[in-house]
Design a protein around this nucleic acid. Structure first.
Lengths: 209, 209
DNA sequence: AGTAAAAGTCACCAAATGGTGACCTAATTT
DNA sequence: AAATTAGGTCACCATTTGGTGACTTTTACT
């Protein structure tokens, strides 16, 4: 019954798996990743928790699969017209950072996922794949690495800091009083200041090196 | 019995409180902040959990008090000779960032505290105090704000990004594969690159503005 | 010394947690 | 149609969780 490829038979298993994945997203949005327990997920999905063990192995692998199923970073990767880059990726990098800054701010799920990735207890070591795509490796390899040549790693280091900063600031704002270094990370003015700083820092890296 | 100030009477209550605070630190170091449950803390402290409710009100306020008791940021605040600053805080800022980068990397407890601050479920809104001191408000107010004048907020924005980057990169490295933007955040070379980038970015802010 | 108020322990509770074996049900194969 | 197999439910378990009332012991004040 299992090797018949002619009839794909996605009767219910796939739908159920999807229901669990959807449930994860829903819980993440509403309750946060700390509330991600088997009972809760099963209840939200309207299915039995045993299926979670059957299909995924446990909550951890469910989460892993959920992260893989959502391509949070696709928006950054693909919305730029390729081939038109003549400035070594300066405007692209800038745009990416600003987009990311805004995107993470608005996307509760992504916030929770980022937080979850920083969290402990994840015994599964499957994140290798997500590693590569997550930080726009193609931006580096295809565009900025050639442009910066020997200084490629220095540019990467700067971007690492900026991307990290974007992540952390939004995570911080989502939970705490949202005032960081005297700037209100939830106000339009505060966020504009951060945006300007990001833009400025990218510019300066391209100019100075 | 309670208003006699002559004899301080720190017989046992203070010691017990301290025992709980120490237990928190110990658990943070060994198991991470997810393992911070009343039962666990009480067991580690060798005392009854009821005292936690009596003395602190609950685990949340215990954590708050723990964070307050550890002045993680004092190392950055006070190790610099005051009054000798003639460069508008440039070297001071640089030094602070680099120190912080190294300090967070080595200090497991601080990592867990940072993570906890990003985490949900903290109903207590007591972090206001920690807010001020945490990000070296005095550095801004006393040194860099005057130096940058109208651009003070722009400088703060840059520092917000850099500090956040320092935090996030170390948190990321502590859990994941530690490769971020193609840099190994655990290797000496990778960290050196980040350090150079931090230094460079601070310099450039002082030069360009 | 005697007393009142703490410090501290213990047993116990209700709820939630992760996890599994027994069972029923629907689809596929033969 | 019968048998098989996977999908799915349910009841149940052991543990752990947060939390509290009743109790004993120690401390300090008069």
């Amino acid at each position: 019954m299992k090797k018949n490829a002619a009839k794909p038979r996605e009767r219910s298993k796939e739908k159920s798996k999807q229901a669990f994945l959807d449930a994860v997203g829903k819980i993440l949005k509403t309750k946060g990743y700390q509330a991600l327990k088997v009972n809760d997920i099963a209840a939200t999905a309207g299915l039995d928790k045993k299926l979670i063990y059957k299909y995924f192995g446990g909550t951890d692998q469910l989460m892993d699969e959920y992260v893989r199923s959502q391509d949070f970073w696709s928006n950054v990767k693909s919305d730029h017209p390729a081939g038109e880059i003549t400035d070594g990726g300066r405007s692209f990098s800038k745009e990416m950072l600003l987009l990311q800054f805004d995107y993470v701010f608005k996307n509760k799920e992504l916030q929770k996922v980022l937080l979850w990735r920083l969290s402990e207890q994840r015994k599964s070591l499957k994140k290798l794949t997500a590693e590569q795509e997550s930080n726009g490796e193609l931006l580096f390899q295809g565009i900025t690495d050639p442009h910066f040549g020997e200084k490629a790693e220095d540019f990467r280091a700067v971007m690492a800091i900026l991307v990290s900063g974007v992540y952390y600031l939004n995570l911080y704002a989502a939970v705490n009083g949202s005032v960081f270094c005297g700037l209100d990370l939830k106000s339009a003015e505060g966020r504009a200041k951060i945006g300007e700083a990001l833009s400025f820092l990218v510019d300066v890296v391209y100019e100075k090196k």
